[in-house]
């Protein structure tokens, strides 16, 4: 589903990604772990077609980036640090706007379905500016899954969430994983990703330092694996 070869990203003289090779099979749930500044956000922005690679090959569902970026954008859903929502629109209006941007048919039915899924159906006509951080993050998730994407990219989705909102996000991510959608999620939260992801890739200094499936990890601690990868 995702194929990345020898990916390099430079900002001026600074090289952020240093030859990443990365492959994700359909239905895999990959947790991208790493310290601040390791290049996780840059890597996800390239997969989301928001940033162009300096060198290397990036293919998603057979489409090449950046050449076929419009086709790729129709297949992916993105949750980033920020909500990408408009404060002066209601939850329903925000989703209606994005439904029109994605050219969805039966948008009304789909919007209701998504709002029920994220537990915001009763607040659908409230302005987003009146929402708590947790509610906004749930709506952000709703926006990302609205067009039923094949690939979901999550960049630190737990940032700023309280315990209750984090549990709700766990539930939505579990549903996503069960439905067979391909997920790449960057996170600092090892304990939360441990129960969700099927594979763990450690990004360090712009390179994949280690990779392991949940089965390979077995009973060994993810934290131990993470620390060893960063030390090595």
């Amino acid at each position: 589903m995702i194929e990345v070869k020898k990916l390099v990203k430079r900002f001026g003289l600074k090289t952020v990604l240093r030859g990443i090779d990365f492959e994700v099979q359909p239905g895999e749930f990959v947790a991208l772990l790493g310290p601040n500044g390791s290049g996780k956000t840059t890597f996800l922005r390239i997969l989301a077609s928001l940033s162009k690679p300096s060198l290397g090959v990036v293919n998603i569902a057979g489409y090449s980036l950046p050449k076929q970026s419009a086709a790729v954008r129709g297949l992916i859903g993105v949750v980033s640090h920020m909500s990408l929502l408009y404060n002066d629109l209601t939850a329903e209006e925000n989703l209606r706007f994005y439904a029109r941007m994605y050219g969805l048919q039966n948008a009304g039915l789909r919007i209701t379905e998504v709002l029920e899924m994220i537990g915001l159906d009763l607040r659908r006509r409230d302005l987003v500016r009146t929402y708590s951080r947790g509610m906004q993050q749930r709506l952000t998730l709703g926006r990302a899954i609205l067009h039923d994407p094949d690939v979901l990219l999550f960049d630190e989705p737990y940032t700023g969430l309280d315990q209750e909102a984090s549990v709700m996000l766990d539930g939505i991510l579990q549903t996503v994983a069960k439905n067979g959608q391909t997920v790449v999620m960057s996170s600092h939260n090892l304990s939360r990703t441990e129960g969700l992801a099927t594979r763990f890739d450690i990004l360090s200094q712009g390179k994949i330092a280690a990779s392991s499936t949940r089965d390979e990890l077995g009973k060994s601690n993810l934290l131990k694996f993470y620390n060893q990868a960063l030390a090595g």
Binding site: G103, H147, N179
Partner: peptide
């Protein structure tokens, strides 16, 4: 979501252009 989705895949880019504007 894949199991629950109603026909919601994007239309062709051409037909979405004016809708997006």
């Amino acid at each position: 979501m894949a199991e629950q989705s109603i026909t919601s895949k994007p239309q062709s880019l051409k037909s979405s252009y004016w809708k997006a504007i």
